[in-house]
Amino acid sequence: MISNHLFPKQYRMIGWMLFVPGIILGIWSLFFDSHPFFDRQVFAVIAEKNLNSYVYFSWKENNILDEIAAVLIIIGGMLAAFSKLPNEDELISQLRLDSLLWATYLNYFILLLSVMFVYEFAFFPIIVFNMFTILIFFLLRFHWVLFRNRLQNDE
């Protein structure tokens, strides 16, 4: 049975158009200082006031480039990953499910190794990447099995 919880196929291209710039922005924000244009007042439900002290429901100034990148990656990635394909049928649904399982296994295996072998502030980038890696692994794996399936079935 084909899943009814997929986005319409028109959203797939929108997803890629958000996801790829999001990834580029995210990588950019890792290696370069952000432009002051992105320093904005934001509403924080929880924010750090100083070490071990928090403020709740307040306005703060924050550079939002990384937040913009994260939103683009998450929304774009979800649309790209979970929109129907033009030739959607039960075989594609099965390949999608298998790929999602594989991506989940891989994501948590890497996270488990990181938990055991990466410590203190060096773990922070792991947490950041882990927000997105399950989507990225899924997209890579799903499109690889689609490509391999197309090769095998065009013989």
Binding site: D89, N153, D154
Partner: peptide
């Protein structure tokens, strides 16, 4: 379904 699905069924995949 797609032609690829029929092909995959016939080949036992």
């Amino acid at each position: 379904v797609s032609r690829q699905s029929i092909n995959a069924i016939e080949k036992g995949r």
